[in-house]
């Protein structure tokens, strides 16, 4: 939880479990070092994770928000901090500040169909939304999860996707940009899954997370099917140092991604989204 008197101070959490996800991603499960009141967050929010002496990085929460005793982060080891977390491994202690930012519109989505479109590790911040939807399944209409990965080796949460696919109340579609031997699924970018997905465009809330270019084409495709701009939500990513709106790094036009985002209703940013170098 954030220390409101001093939001810069991290709280210590121990890495209780490390789960390898793909060749370059892993999930850490964190438990607080000292007893606390539990960590509550909303799907789509993120934490700043700190490694002693190394630094801090913003990472989305990817666990079930109903579980407050531990939290999970899926991490791709691409930077100094994320690599350091990987090196710490099980038993290591990290600093946590958060949760920060806006969340997926799970209340507004009630009574509607929900289309979730994820690209690569963009599935991580959407997983808490899926958990929450499954926990209150009767409140939502049809659910479609459209997931695109670069190759079959990049498919995140493979076992969970398989398990979910066994449910009859959710449509799960997976595609890869380039296949390998033995792949029997779809090949192509994630947008190719949109025309065939089952949802009523006029009563659909869309939640998208992935690279900006993927989100841009996904939005177009959803709009082509008639999904209203104000019912489309995307998760943005920018450089961040503080998470609380002070460092200025995450500015995206008039918004601060750390506090006005990362989840944006698309009609609120559509005039700047896709403009080069904003």
């Amino acid at each position: 939880m954030v220390d409101t008197a001093n939001p810069f101070i991290p709280t210590q959490y121990r890495i209780q479990k490390v789960l390898g996800e793909t060749y370059d991603t892993f999930t850490v499960e964190l438990v607080p070092l000292q007893d606390n009141d539990g960590f509550s967050f909303l799907p789509g929010q993120f934490n700043m994770l700190y490694v002693f002496g190394v630094g801090e990085a913003p990472i989305s929460l990817c666990s079930d928000p109903a579980i407050e005793t531990s939290i999970k982060h899926t991490i791709r080891a691409v930077g100094t901090v994320t690599s350091a977390i990987q090196r710490l491994g099980r038993g290591g202690v990290v600093g946590v500040r958060g949760p920060f930012g806006t969340h997926w519109p799970l209340d507004d989505a009630k009574g509607n169909d929900v289309v979730i479109v994820a690209g690569g590790i963009g599935l991580a911040p959407l997983r808490p939304a899926l958990y929450q939807i499954f926990a209150h399944r009767e409140k939502y209409g049809r659910i479609a999860l459209l997931f695109g990965a670069r190759t079959p080796h990049d498919i995140l949460y493979k076992h969970e996707l398989e398990r979910w696919r066994g449910r009859f109340d959710v449509e799960i579609k997976v595609t890869v940009d380039s296949a390998i031997n033995g792949w029997r699924g779809n090949v192509g970018v994630v947008t190719t899954l949109i025309p065939g997905a089952q949802f009523d465009p006029l009563n659909t809330i869309a939640m998208i997370c992935g690279p900006e270019v993927m989100m841009r084409f996904t939005i177009k495709e959803l709009q082509n099917r008639g999904v209203k701009t104000e019912n489309i939500y995307i998760s943005m990513e920018r450089n961040m140092k503080c998470g609380v709106g002070f460092c200025g790094h995450c500015q995206f036009g008039p918004t601060f991604v750390c506090k006005d985002g990362p989840i944006f209703r698309f009609d609120r940013i559509n005039t700047i989204f896709g403009k080069r170098e904003i």
Binding site: F8, F52, G53, E56, C247, G248
Partner: peptide, 26 residues
């Protein structure tokens, strides 16, 4: 102008770490 960056530093023993905030520029 209020933008800042942070620098995380340690001493030679590796036992102490500090987080410094510095003016930054867009």
């Amino acid at each position: 102008c209020f933008c800042t960056t942070v620098e995380d530093v340690t001493d030679l023993t590796g036992e102490h770490a500090e987080r410094w905030r510095k003016w930054d520029s867009c």
